Computed example of a mutant assay.
Amino acid sequence: MIRNSTFAATGMPVSYTDHFNEIAQYNVQLNLLEKAWAAWYAYMQNDVLATGIMSFVMHELVYFGRALPFIIMDQIPYFQKYKIQAHKMPTLAEQWQCAKLVLLSHFTVELPQIWLFHPTAQYFGMSTSVPFPAWQTMAYQIAIFFVLEDTWHYWFHRALHTPMLYKKIHKLHHQYSAPFGLAAEYASPIETMILAFGAVGVPIVWAAVTQNLHILTMYTWIILRLFQAIDAHSGYEFPWSLHHVLPFWAGADHHDVHHEKFLGNYSSSFRWWDSVLGTEVGSASDKMAKPKKAAMAKAQ
């Protein structure tokens, strides 16, 4: 049983530290992160506001924080050998223009949805309390979300490439034929809502059906999905890229070709839907390997 902060009953203004110390004193069974989590909700005294601020700040820090290393690498000549389309290096002006539209989308399209997330999540049975679930529970649920989101993304992304939907909705995302990390969420509001359902709606449906999902699992899943999306749009193929370890993983090797050719490779995280349904259009690593093989053959 978790004992909550009692400061609210006094009506006196108190700091976050006061709430944390009281919760830590009476809930010694909690770990440090759980105490910090409970103190945040006690300090805010408004669960919708507490979840909304935490969700939005987390999204912005992860999105732009993960894109930043690729922005830096684009300015360093050493990394050009890993760039899939090295002849189309994005300029800082292009990246800033992209960032402005992404920020506009975050504040006008995503922020209202994030603000409604807490009541929606609680209505469908998602937990926001402590203690947190076991890591094993989080791991298998996140694995399921990856598979279900990839399926959703494949079919709706493929639908967005039909002539009418492409022209009216999806064309904006293909403004950059050589993608870069910041462009992961460079899209029209309609596309953002359609494809975002795979990332947000799938866990909510899971919570409604199973009544077994914690918001921390949701946050961890969203962070991993953001990493995947930004990496897939990074335009970089490294010797340590994940698909070299997991052959069914997609990533930039898979998605960069989609932006270059404007078709095929519709999946988000995995390659199996494209492979089974004949929409695989090759990989960037194969394309990059051909000149190397030709040079080796010429040298022999």
Rank of each mutant, 00 (worst) to 15 (best):
H173V: 10
Y166A: 09
V130G: 01
I2V: 13
H173W: 14
T6C: 04
S241G: 11
F20E: 08
Y123L: 13
E110W: 11
K100Y: 04
M218V: 00
I223G: 06
F64M: 05
A50I: 03
L92F: 02
Y43F: 14
T51C: 04
Q122F: 04
Y140H: 08
A24T: 07
H258K: 02
P90F: 09
A67Y: 00
F107H: 13
D47F: 10
H244R: 10
L165Y: 13
S283K: 10
S241Q: 06
R225S: 13
T91K: 01
I190C: 02
Y236D: 02
Y140G: 05
I84H: 10
S5Y: 02
M193V: 14
A284L: 02
G181I: 05
A36M: 10
F124K: 01
G264I: 00
E60F: 05
M54Q: 15
A252R: 05
G235E: 14
W240P: 04
L213W: 03
G52W: 08
P133V: 09
E22V: 02
M138T: 09
G65E: 13
S55C: 06
V14M: 11
E94F: 01
A232D: 11
A252P: 03
I71R: 09
P131N: 07
S129K: 07
I204S: 03
L226M: 14
A39C: 07
S285M: 12
L172S: 04
W155M: 12
E191F: 01
P239S: 09
V48K: 14
K287F: 03
Y41F: 15
P189R: 06
H161E: 10
T108C: 10
M1Q: 05
A196Q: 13
W221H: 05
Y140W: 08
Y63P: 14
A229Y: 05
L104G: 02
V102N: 12
S269R: 09
I204R: 00
L104V: 04
L172G: 02
T151Q: 05
A183E: 15
P13K: 12
Q80C: 07
Q136H: 10
H244F: 05
A297P: 09
G251E: 04
K35M: 08
G278F: 11
W272A: 01
V147Q: 00
T137I: 05
D47L: 10
H153L: 10
V102W: 12
Q25W: 09
T51M: 06
K81A: 10
R3K: 03
A196W: 09
